[in-house]
Structure formats: structure tokens, C-alpha cells
Design a protein around this nucleic acid. Structure first.
Lengths: 252, 252
DNA sequence: CGTTCTATTGAATAACGTCAAGGACGGTGG
DNA sequence: CCACCGTCCTTGACGTTATTCAATAGAACG
């Protein structure tokens, strides 16, 4: 694990040129909003896979939007047990969970090389003052994240291991697809079965057995990091994954 | 279960007289903020225990602040399995999880008679426009809720049933205490073991056995609905509950 | 006092975790 | 090119945890 002590600003691409904005899923911004966001933004930087972005118990003065790469957000118990709260994909806004002056209560680590857009936490109040619309977007994102956690909580509490795995894989697949990470129905999952186990709240061994069975039942394929589902409908059905219409969402 | 089809406005107490504001845990508002909030508020109403406030799959035009009473927020699977996401206590702001025009993805039901402060969802954007500070408070509450869910997720995924129960009971006790519901170290828990089981992701039988053991080990007492812990430190320790300094929080 | 929730307990069963041992694969250095 | 390693994946055997089934006892409520 590689601790990023200081986030150097590599360069600064104007927000209006942000490649993510081309994804249909993201709400278009007005010129004024983009200007404000550009102003809010400090810069970008790139880290390699395995870098720690946030660390439990440490304060962070920055917020990030992920431009590229995968990561995950997690908490650990003193004896080392780890729970992955969720995976982080391009377009995700991270760091909001902590208050302005409080310590992070979770850690974030990258799975692949990643590039992040940086915002100073202190200026968030200024953004709220200058653009109610962007303020609303921030709130909207927080509420959306909460809905995702609700569903995950339902999984961990009440779904069987098999249903849980099916739900989560369907969920991850769709999230990746939304931001253009799917090629011919395939997505590269840059995490190991141990990561998935830690997200599902299962042991590594049991996770493996369930994945093998889902593979045998032709619900998933996951080899050499490349994932696809031969029958996504059945996978979603098994997991109780709701293929709701993906609504437009903000991008900060 | 008693479905509340329409929320009649019983009366409207000015926000500046809100009894909850006396609790030390809540951040004081400026006069201007209170005025705006009063303006935002439609009124109050009272429901009996067992009433459904929100229903999964149904749109709601209102947001609520709980003035008095207990409730819980939950999701269910088609076959009836239920997961309680969290309990709702006085001072909690509910309904934010859904977007302006989307269906609720969870239900909320009262456990006791409750009185709720009502706000029209549509006017939320106006509040954002008129008071960045209140907007920030809304966001802050959403982020805080997320942190609570993170911790609960860690519980369900990685804590043993015993640790989980200890954590959750400690958590509930402190929450109740914060809003003045504790009398001589005792809190009335208005829910059944089935509710607790559904929150912990355990079966009723197993929950009961664990509670009996916690009682035998003199970590908790819970009789006739009245809860206390003879050794809160040990309970918190077992559950890994962090007795962080309770920071001030907004009240809407 | 019946009736209806709720709590409690034991026994049988299923789900999941732990332990242990290989196997596949890619990278590295000789 | 090949031996050596480290990481990740896979599988079987076995132990533990939690669920389900079933039955009874207590409380709460008219």
C-alpha cells in the first residue's frame, strides 16, 4: 500500500473539457455552473493502483471526483476484519462523508491507476452560497449514495450469499456500463475475490464457491479479470436487482 | 398497520418555540433561519403507533422532522424478508432519500404515537436558494446519515451476532439519550425483539438467545420495554462502539 | 379469563467459516 | 529458456454459527 501524503497538482483541465461529461448519464451544466466548478477545482492528480486516498482517523482537506480508475471505500475493525462499503468508479464524488472539521471514518484505496479531480473542502460553503443548484446536486449525490447503501444493507442483512453475490455483480456491472466501461457486454473488474468477499460480508472461500456455482449455472463469467453475464436478466432476477430506468445524475 | 393516506395539518407551532431546540445537541439557528424554516414548514400532525408514513414504491410530496415518537425505516424483499435500515427518533429528518420526483425506495412506519413536522418537498429548492447555510445543514444531515449506515454495514458484514447486538444497543441508547429520552440511565425501547432482529439481520430466535446471554453477562437489562446497561463501557467495548464526542448537529 | 402478541427454550438442519493443500498464472532473475 | 516466487484461485473436510421448526410460558388487552 502506497500512502499518498501530499496531493500534487499535475495539471488542470478546464471542467468544460471534462471527458466524463460526454456520458449520457450525467446532467449537463450551464456555463455559469461549469465556471463555478472550475473555480472550485484545485487541479488534478494521478495515483497508481493500491494508493490510499483517505485513511480512517485522518482529516482530509480535500474532496475528489474520480475521473478515471477504480477504487473502494472501506472500514476495518481493530483485529483486521475489513468491510468494503462500496466500490468507486469514474464520476463518483468522494469525501463528503466527513464534516468540514472531522476525521474520516473510513478509508479509500485505489485498485488501478486513477486520476482525481481535487476540490478544497473549505470552499464547499462558498459553492453553496454561489450556486443553490450545485448545492442541491451535492445533496442529491449524498442522498443517492444513501439509497445505494440502503440496498446493500438489505443484501447483507436479508439476502442469502448467492442472492447477495448476484445482486452485487449486477449492480457493479451496471455502474461500470453507465460510465462507458463496458465493451461488448464485458467489463474489466480490477479487484480480487477477496475484495468481493469483503464487500459481500462473506469469507473468501465461500465467495469462491458461490462464484463457481454462478458460473456453472451460466449466470456469470469472470476470467482474467473480465466479467460478463450470459444472462443478465436471470442474474438480476436472482439478486433482486431492480433494473430501474437510470436517471440522469449530477457530475461534480 | 394503519396507512396514513393524507396528512392533515393539525396545527402549526412556530419553529422558534420548538421544544426540541432545547436539547444541547442541536445547533442554534439565527432568527432569519428560523423564520425561513417556519415559512418552509406546512404544519404538524400526529399519528398513532403502527402508522405508515412512507411506503416503498409510492411517491411522497413531503419531508418530515420527527418532533416526538419512534419509528423505523425499512425495506422488504418480495417474499417478505424485512431489513430495518435504521430507527427514527425525535429530531430526525426523513424523506430526503428520494429525489424530488422519484418513488420512495423504502418504507417508514411509526412504533409509537408520533408527531411530525411537515415540509413540502417542492420547496426544498427554494430553501437552498434562500439560505446556503440551511442547505448546508441538509447536506450535512445526509452525510451524517451515510456515516451511520457505513457503520451499520460494517456490523452486518463483519461483526459477529453478539458484537452486532452490543453495538446496536449501545448506538440506540446513545441516540435516545441525546434527545432526552433517558431517565436515570434507562430508555424505553418501543420495539420488539423481532424489530431488533430485522435491524441486525438475524433471526428472531437467535436474537433472543443473544439478548439472553448479554443479560446473563450483565451487559444489558431489557424488561417490559425498559432498557439499561449495567456496564455501558463493557457493552460499547464489546460492540466496538466509538463513544466519540457527540458533535452539535442541525435540526430542521 | 380467554385471546393475542411476545418472549423463551430445545432439537434438528442448513448456511457459512476455517483449515489445509494444491493448482494456475505472471513476473523475475539467472 | 527455465527455475523460483508470490499472488490469486480452487477444492475438500470439518467445525461453528445461525436458521428453522416446534412447543410452551408470560404479558398485555380487552
Amino acid at each position: 500500500m502506497n500512502l499518498v501524503a501530499q496531493f500534487a497538482v499535475d495539471h488542470k483541465v478546464p471542467c468544460e473539457q471534462c471527458p466524463l461529461r460526454d456520458c449520457a448519464i450525467f446532467r449537463p451544466l450551464s456555463d455559469g455552473e461549469v465556471d463555478l466548478l472550475s473555480d472550485f477545482k484545485i487541479g488534478e492528480f494521478t495515483v497508481e493502483g493500491g494508493s490510499t486516498i483517505f485513511s480512517e482517523g485522518v482529516r482530509s482537506d480535500q474532496l475528489f471526483t474520480v475521473l478515471e480508475g477504480w477504487g473502494f471505500r472501506y472500514k476495518t475493525l481493530p483485529d483486521g476484519r475489513r468491510q468494503i462499503i462500496n466500490f468507486i468508479l469514474p464520476g463518483d464524488f468522494i469525501g463528503l462523508q466527513a464534516t468540514l472539521d472531522a476525521e474520516m471514518e473510513h478509508s479509500v484505496e485505489t485498485l488501478t491507476a486513477a486520476s482525481l479531480c481535487t476540490f478544497p473542502r473549505q470552499k464547499l460553503t462558498e459553492v453553496f452560497a454561489r450556486s443553490p443548484r450545485l448545492a442541491f446536486d451535492v445533496t442529491w449525490l449524498a442522498a443517492r449514495e444513501e439509497r445505494v447503501l440502503d440496498e446493500h444493507l438489505l443484501s447483507l442483512g436479508r439476502r442469502t450469499a448467492r442472492e447477495r453475490a448476484a445482486y452485487y455483480l449486477a449492480h457493479l456491472f451496471v455502474r461500470a456500463e453507465e460510465v462507458g466501461l463496458a465493451v461488448e457486454g464485458r467489463v474489466r473488474f480490477p479487484f480480487t475475490q477477496q475484495h468481493l468477499a469483503d464487500a459481500l460480508g462473506l469469507s473468501l472461500v465461500h465467495t469462491n464457491k458461490i462464484l463457481r456455482r454462478l458460473t456453472y449455472d451460466r449466470l456469470i463469467e469472470w476470467e482474467h479479470g473480465l466479467f460478463r453475464s450470459p444472462d443478465f436478466g436471470a442474474l438480476a432476477e436472482l439478486g433482486g436487482y431492480d433494473m430501474e430506468d437510470r436517471q440522469e445524475r449530477p457530475l461534480l
